[in-house]
């Protein structure tokens, strides 16, 4: 077992998710199945091998600092679940 139900609970919390008690055993089992399979990577000698973060040669793409039109304020709010005074409304953040 790579991860226990307690670990899965912790990972869920980091991911801002909840796994129900009913789902937990199967979820943990499948999680372990995938992580166990990942052990085959340990057979590969990667000493001195650079990681590939992107297949492209990464470089900064710059442009002239000229103002451009972005998404309009009212457009940005169009899909908001709740709006208050031209802003996104959320429940209380600090108790």
């Amino acid at each position: 077992m790579k991860v226990t139900e307690k670990d899965v609970k912790y990972i869920a919390a980091l991911s801002r998710l909840e796994i129900s008690e009913a789902e937990m055993p199967k979820f943990t089992e499948q999680f372990n199945q995938i992580l166990n399979y990942a052990d085959i990577l340990q057979k590969v000698d990667t000493t001195g091998i650079e990681p590939t973060f992107s297949i492209l040669p990464l470089y900064n793409v710059l442009r002239e600092d000229v103002p451009q039109e972005g998404v309009a304020h009212e457009d940005a709010l169009k899909n908001a679940p709740a709006v208050h005074n031209d802003g996104f409304k959320v429940p209380r953040v600090i108790e």
Binding site: L41, T46, T52
Partner: peptide, 25 residues
Amino acid sequence: MLGTYVLSSGYYDAYYKKAMQVRTL
């Protein structure tokens, strides 16, 4: 959750970095 796990402190090198190196191969 799998992604969160492989990027989390203590597992990054074993899973994520390793996978990125194998991607090079």
